[in-house]
């Protein structure tokens, strides 16, 4: 009899706590309709920046390619004799391999490779996860 009482009392005490949260605003977010604010430091997909004149800043130093632990960045570099600097003719990031560690962004000496706050990059095909230069240079 005492046992029944203690067990019921424990359940009631637990219920009191859960009942308290009936009257508090729910913490759940109805995801596709409303979205949480994302921190500006969020490590999402990659993007290359242009300078003020609208030219590309990347000079193809290949540091991001070398530092990537999963080898997901690949590029081809040529030298422009007129402007006397190097440019990338192709710059491909395979986001199927990328682990979003952020080492490439940290290592970039020109600070032209940055993260975007995107987090929704699901696709139907693997091929569309391979982003070429026209999609990365924005």
């Amino acid at each position: 009899m005492i046992k029944i009482f203690t067990y019921t009392w424990a359940i009631l005490k637990g219920m009191a706590i859960t009942f308290k949260y009936f009257f508090i605003r729910p913490v759940t977010v109805q995801y596709p309709k409303e979205k949480i604010k994302i921190s500006p430091r969020w490590r999402g997909t990659l993007k290359q920046l242009r300078n003020e004149q609208g030219e590309e800043t990347c000079d193809g130093c290949r540091i991001c390619e070398k530092i990537c632990p999963v080898n997901c960045i690949s590029m081809e570099v040529y030298k422009d004799e007129k402007k006397n600097r190097r440019f990338t003719s192709s710059y491909t990031v395979n986001f199927g391999r990328c682990m979003f560690c952020g080492l490439c962004v940290e290592a970039c000496p020109k600070k032209c490779l940055v993260h975007t706050p995107d987090f929704e990059f699901c696709t139907y095909e693997r091929e569309s996860l391979i982003l070429t230069k026209d999609k990365i240079l924005r």
Binding site: I38, S39, R41, W42, R43, F100, G102, L103
Partner: peptide, 27 residues
């Protein structure tokens, strides 16, 4: 979730932080 939000504001990831560096921290 609240701890993960704090981590997100510091290092930009919620699960795989990659925050420490040899000689300090990244940010």
């Amino acid at each position: 979730e609240k701890i993960l939000d704090l981590y997100e504001s510091v290092c930009g990831a919620r699960l795989t932080y990659n925050y420490f560096r040899i000689g300090g921290v990244s940010a």
